[in-house]
Design a protein around this nucleic acid. Structure first.
Length: 893
RNA sequence: AGGCGCGUAGCUCAGUUGGUAGAGCGUUGCCUCGACACGGCAAAGGUCAGCGGUUCGAGCCCGCUCGCGCCUACCA
């Protein structure tokens, strides 16, 4: 007899196993000794080195771990590769802030010292999240951990850059870009947020040069007027058609600027005339290119007015300049009106500073060819296969179709410095190394471009750079392409699409076959969790309170739909964990003798054993199928119901009499062995979701652990992690057993219902009279002892057509069976009649509906015969049951 | 402004190719019956947002309306 505590304490199991799993190499694919085993690979979406675990990580990691553990147990050489992203801007900001406390700026240190400082910071504070990933139970292969700034990954970055440059896909150019005046760097379109903003719309008058009057333009940014080089109107706008080509005199600057016609202008908005500032607005920039307009930069990289704006403005902050421009227009009588106006404004995703569009020389990546590769792959092969396909497949392809060039340079020090050098003459040399560059340039006098690459440039290479690319390593050959990418939807553009493009470009093969897009955990009010709102739930606190396994189950069941966080949900899975613990406790308490049974399910089996074996195999089938479809929600439900309802509520209860008998016997040992076997297989089914609890219990079971390992891991120290994941043996699915058992369950439930409804004390023994056809008589007779036990009946008599005593509570069952509980002197006839009447009413309602349906000629003709037949059979049964109820009612009158 | 998703039991969510609405929690009643009160047994609770259409039949398909959310966008 093995005794364990009454309540499951997760903290103990959580401390016991992870270190051992890791040390023994269970997470590494090398543990698999079958050289021909299929391969399963996931690369983790690398969290930022500055980051700490949030609910989104926990959600994704749970799903990735479930998939990895399932494949590993199924005999795959499973690799889940972990790592981190250097997160250029965030990390630089973090260290800059630290320096600031010491009264230093990064410029005081200089680039080299600063970068050293960042590495030191990473050493000390970075990667908190890696510890937290361990806490989650994630079975990642730490021996293959990668960081995007590792030398091997940096090499991949340079290789990719050089190749794209040589193919003409990367170029340097002067264009209008998103500039963050706070971070002092350019940003890509994807790193810019659009936020609604309450502001003003200013109507400004620009006088004509050669005639009286003026044109009024509307703008939200009056300060940019200093850089205006034209006013545009729609070519179809009759109000202005005669004025196109006229010259205006720009107030304050006294610059002569033309009126041009352009389709971009919407006549309905404002006055229908738009001021054009090519140097500070993306649309104006485009228009400037079309009309060959001068670009005059009036705002600098610190968002201050430039020298060209003259003594009144130069050096002023952009917002101060705005006020001053408006004031001056007002003084000159050129301010037409100011109205309240709500519009959206661009902000830096990181620091929320308002973006200043300005022209600047940057590196860009042309996306047309890369985009076509990705689109063709989707069109021809349906790759990647998005789960769920709606709406993500369309979101992905729509975005690709409208893709514009990617700004890849950043004015930071932390990141991959661009492998481009300049000669004294300003010639560009792009090379894999400084040595190559010198050779190409034919001179040693080279200066490297100071910029670094967008962090997402290295992330885009992650699925193959982590496996050794550009070297043709064994890992690359073995584990690429990866199997599935699990991610949140907000990085489909930033990351997923870019990996797809680079994978196809550099490997000629997609980086992953499937993309599983998870739902989002919202707060209880349906709001997104965010740092700024402070409404986030810390997964580590939830682990602490309810256990890792319960939290994982909660997260897995979120699946792909957004779900509000509910602590009660976690609580219910905590209770489930406790249920499993106690079921195991019970089996262990009654395990003596079990280990002597070689093959617990050999020979002829009684109904409940055939039934649980069938249920177990069907469950295995379902779990495997559902995991194959990434139906995480469904698989959690399947496991929960199998374990709690089928195994605990029925199988254990049905087995109790035999397995807990006082005296030792072969029957008792066999029953015990069967219980333990079903429990053991259930633990294996549950393991991918609840790794700690299942390992803790599995190790305690009196079974031959080594024999349960998957053949690929036969030599390993036994662990449930490497045990075979249960597969469905179709020969053991027994529909007859399931339907027979269903009849027993119904019988027991109906009797319990009678007991409850007419208030028979739980301790009171009853008589049970059962009438049934020959088949069911056999079933009930074989299970009579169990039926008696579960209904707390003193005795059970079964025959073909029992004479039911008048004073009895009765019920009709499926298959024409009837049951009666005689209650001499105790039964309240009126109450019992009422109960039966309610019963009958329910049946009649259903019957009426069916009759209506079957009476409809159209239905009978057009519906599938099978369906019609089913309804007829049900109607017949209802008629039979109703008749039986009538008899019972009559007997009571 | 477009595009998309959601609106099912008090709450959180499932509902596979259209064929008599499901789970967990919560609620109610009973229960220390030798695993578990983080438990057992039983029960109540839904014109599937609204309106219209297609169909023999619609939570599921189509259209419109209302409410919520998300994404994309060059109306200054």
């Amino acid at each position: 007899m093995i005794e364990i505590p009454k309540t499951y304490d997760p903290s103990e199991a959580e401390q016991n196993h992870y270190a051992r799993w890791e040390e023994r190499g269970y997470f590494a694919p090398e543990i698999n000794k079958n050289p021909t085993a299929p391969v399963f690979t996931i690369v983790i979406p690398p969290p930022n080195v500055t980051g700490s675990l949030h609910m989104g990580h926990a959600l994704q990691h749970t799903m990735m771990d479930v998939l990895t553990r399932h494949k590993r147990m199924s005999g795959f050489r499973a690799l889940w590769l972990p790592g981190m992203d250097h997160a250029g801007i965030s990390t630089q900001l973090m260290v800059t802030r630290q320096l600031k406390k010491e009264g230093l700026s990064r410029h005081d240190l200089g680039r080299e010292k600063f970068v050293e400082r960042v590495w030191a910071w990473k050493q000390e504070y970075g990667g908190q999240i890696l510890k937290q990933i361990r806490r989650e139970g994630a079975s990642v292969d730490w021996s293959r951990e990668r960081f995007t700034m590792d030398e091997s990954l940096s090499r991949a970055v340079r290789e990719a850059f050089v190749r794209l440059y040589e193919d003409g896909m990367i170029y340097r150019g002067n264009r209008i870009v998103n500039w963050c005046p706070n971070d002092q760097t350019v940003l890509s379109d994807l790193e810019v947020l659009r936020e609604p903003q309450k502001g003003k719309l200013y109507y400004l008058r620009y006088p004509f040069k050669n005639r009286e009057g003026f044109v009024t333009v509307a703008t939200t940014r009056p300060e940019t007027m200093l850089g205006d080089t034209a006013v545009a109107v729609n070519p179809g706008d009759e109000r202005y058609s005669s004025l196109v080509g006229e010259i205006l005199v720009l107030p304050l600057m006294n610059r002569e600027i033309p009126i041009v016609a352009d389709d971009y202008v919407e006549s309905e908005f404002g006055t229908g005339a738009v001021k054009i500032t090519p140097a500070h607005d993306p649309n104006d920039y485009e228009m400037g290119v079309r009309h060959n307009l001068e670009q005059i930069a009036v705002i600098d990289q610190f968002a201050r007015m430039t020298e060209v704006t003259g003594p009144d403005f130069a050096g002023l902050d952009r917002y101060k300049a705005r006020d001053l421009v408006v004031e001056k227009f007002d003084e000159l009588g050129l301010l037409d009106q100011v109205i309240d106006y709500e519009f959206s404004i661009s902000k830096c995703e990181r620091c929320k500073t308002v973006i200043e569009p300005l022209t600047s020389t940057q590196w860009f990546c042309r996306m047309d060819q890369l985009r076509d590769l990705a689109l063709a792959k989707l069109r021809d092969d349906g790759t990647p296969h998005f789960v769920p396909p709606v709406p993500y497949e369309k979101v992905y392809s729509d975005w690709l179709e409208n893709l514009r060039d990617w700004t890849i340079s950043r004015q930071l020090w932390w990141g991959h410095q661009i492998p481009a050098w300049y000669t004294a003459e300003g010639e560009i040399v792009v090379a894999r190394s400084i040595e190559d560059a010198k050779e190409k340039a034919g001179t040693d006098e080279l200066t490297q471009d100071p910029d670094v690459l967008d962090t997402w440039f290295s992330s885009a290479l992650w699925p193959f750079s982590t496996l050794g690319w550009p070297e043709e390593t064994e890992d690359l050959k073995t584990f690429y392409p990866t199997s599935v990418l699990v991610t949140a939807r907000d990085i489909i553009f930033l990351w997923v699409s870019r990996m797809m493009m680079t994978g196809l470009r550099f490997r000629g093969q997609e980086p992953f076959a499937d993309v599983y897009v998870t739902g989002t955990v919202l707060d209880k009010h349906g709001q997104r969790m965010s740092k700024t709102k402070g409404n986030g739930i810390d997964p580590l606190e939830v682990f602490e309170k309810y256990g890792v396994d319960a939290t994982r189950l909660t997260l897995a069941s979120v699946g792909s739909t957004d779900t509000r966080w509910s602590e009660r949900q976690v609580e219910s899975y905590r209770n489930f964990a406790n249920k499993i613990w106690n079921a195991a406790r019970f089996c262990l308490m009654n395990s003596d003798g079990a280990e002597s049974v070689a093959d617990p399910f050999a020979g002829q089996l009684p109904l409940h054993d055939r039934w649980i074996v069938s249920r177990l195999n069907k469950t295995a089938q379902e779990v495997n199928d559902q995991l194959g479809e990434y139906d995480f929600h469904g698989v959690v439900q399947t496991l929960y119901h199998f374990f709690w309802d089928d195994f605990c509520d029925w199988y254990i209860e049905l087995s109790k009499a035999t397995m807990t008998s006082e005296t030792d016997s072969p029957e008792r040992s066999t029953a015990r062995a069967r219980l333990i076997s079903v429990l053991e297989q259930s633990l294996r089914l549950l393991h991918p979701f609840m790794p700690y609890l299942t390992e803790e219990l599995w190790q305690k079971l009196p079974v031959d652990h080594a024999k349960l390992l998957h053949p690929a891991y036969a030599e390993a120290e036994p662990t449930i992690m490497l045990a075979s994941f249960p597969q469905c043996d179709k020969a053991l699915v027994d529909e007859r057993a399931e339907s027979d058992m269903q009849a027993v369950i119904e019988l027991v439930s109906r009797v319990r219902n009678i007991r409850s409804e007419i208030n028979i004390k739980p301790g009171e023994r009853i008589q049970l009279l059962i009438a049934a056809n020959a088949d069911l008589q056999t079933v009930f007779t074989a299970s009579a002892d169990q039926i008696a036990r579960l209904t707390r009946a003193a005795n059970v008599s079964i025959d073909g057509r029992a004479e039911m005593p008048k004073a009895s509570a009765r019920a009709v069952l499926a298959g024409g069976a009837e049951v009666a509980v005689p209650l001499e002197g105790l039964i309240d006839f009126a109450q019992e009649r009422e109960r039966l009447r309610r019963e009958k009413e329910k049946l009649e309602k259903e019957g009426a509906k069916l009759e209506g349906q079957l009476g409809n000629q159209d239905f009978v003709e057009r519906a599938p015969a099978e369906k019609v037949e089913g309804l007829r059979a049900r109607l017949a049964e209802i008629a039979q049951q109703t008749a039986a109820l009538d008899q019972m009612l009559e007997a009571l009158s």
